[in-house]
Design a protein around this nucleic acid. Sequence first.
DNA 1: TCAATATTGATAATAAATCCCAAGTATTTT
DNA 2: AAAATACTTGGGATTTATTATCAATATTGA
Lengths: 140, 140
Amino acid sequence: MNDNDLKRAGLSATQPRRLILDLLQQNPEAHLSAEEVYRRLLEQGETVGIATVYRVLGQFEKSNLINRHQFDGTTSVYELNQGKHHDHIICNECGRVVEFIDEEIEQRQRNIAEQQGFHIDSHLLYIFGHCTNPNCRYKP
Amino acid sequence: MNDNDLKRAGLSATQPRRLILDLLQQNPEAHLSAEEVYRRLLEQGETVGIATVYRVLGQFEKSNLINRHQFDGTTSVYELNQGKHHDHIICNECGRVVEFIDEEIEQRQRNIAEQQGFHIDSHLLYIFGHCTNPNCRYKP
DNA sequence: TCAATATTGATAATAAATCCCAAGTATTTT
DNA sequence: AAAATACTTGGGATTTATTATCAATATTGA
């Protein structure tokens, strides 16, 4: 049960919050939009208002239970925060998302920011391309 | 006159396109939203419909005359494409944007993509932080 | 358990961007 | 250069993702 995760985040354990966190914990690799979360709950026979889905995802993001990304310019997707920061490679054709982290890139960023007189709050690195996955719709 | 730039991009030389390209060429360092472009043209006494501004910016982006960015998740901004790729550091407080490029980071990205079986189309790196600019609203 | 407080969910509102289409402008043809 | 054709514009309606409102409901601490 994930009530403890909610408590730790300073959130009371309500049904919608339980369901949404559960769904994300069950799919730790997934990057789901609010609509997708809504639909999946419906499929499970659980009804949570779409407004609540947005609200709860926002709360989870604020308490660092999950991370928000915007791979395309229009829709936010959310994934479970598993502690380890990482960046993303996204296939423009099949949508596959691969996570990676590169300490050298992280270090260079810190250097650059310092050089420019900035203190880093966060960063965001997406690499877009075509993957060679056999399931990929893209045929080279 | 920038009619030639338009021709080269395969776009006929209409008044709105001239005005918008002019504005961006006059401010090569600026990152303007569609609304801002619209407002600045109004200030110049030129009226271009907002729908046209969006349309033309889209066309310019497609023909690589300009680049589109989304520093916050909600609004796109555009800047003149001056050929040289670069990344951005954005101050969360005062909105200042500094451009940089780091060959080491570029190289690491290529390595990582190859390792993961991707062919890179593009990438996007934003560093968000606080700047130490005296004009910055952020007081450390 | 019960009252105080927080949360939910249906719906309305918002904001950015796109679509539609009649009227206007640019380009090509003659 | 005028006529014919093709493309572009602009105003408003529309879409899409998300947020705000608020009465009804659920949660929690005493």
